[in-house]
């Protein structure tokens, strides 16, 4: 913790003034962290909504409701999205990745980086579809 605070103030640790300074910094730092976390969560939610505009054209259902989006993480203004495909031999991942990236950038143009990756583990199963998607397909 001392190291996190920095060498310039090390000399003051142990004194009352030092403690005061240290706790003031910590609370400011944690406050900032909370603000950042809130912002990240907010951006993550926006991305989930943005991805609802990306459709699987064959089925006519968006990739979120299809259960093809595995994770959305935003940290330090950088987004990392993991999606999967329903088939390992389908070339559509090229288009879907591009459309997902565009949809995110349209909603959050100030993001520094958007990384949309296709993952194959765990394999997609129909159980991952939302109830709404299942209803659309007449389950």
């Amino acid at each position: 913790m001392v190291l996190r605070y920095g060498l310039s103030r090390l000399i003051e640790i142990g004194s009352d003034k030092g403690k005061q300074l240290y706790y003031a910094h910590l609370s400011k730092h944690e406050g900032q962290q909370n603000v950042n976390q809130q912002q990240d969560t907010q951006q993550q939610n926006i991305i989930w909504v943005a991805l609802q505009s990306v459709m699987d054209p064959e089925v006519g259902i968006n990739i979120v409701d299809m259960g093809m989006v595995y994770s959305v993480v935003v940290s330090n203004n950088q987004a990392k999205v993991a999606i999967t495909m329903t088939s390992p031999s389908c070339p559509l991942h090229v288009t879907i990745r591009k459309e997902a990236r565009q949809a995110i950038m349209r909603r959050l143009p100030k993001l520094h980086a958007v990384d949309v990756r296709v993952v194959w583990e765990p394999p997609w199963t129909p159980e991952l579809m939302t109830d709404e998607a299942k209803k659309t397909l007449g389950w």
Binding site: M55, P57, E58, V59, G60, T136, L137, G138
Partner: peptide, 16 residues
């Protein structure tokens, strides 16, 4: 086939 359901949708999905 899923086309039996998706034919009731619109646009490209219906066309397919």
């Amino acid at each position: 086939d899923i086309a039996r359901r998706t034919v009731k949708q619109a646009g490209l999905t219906r066309f397919i």
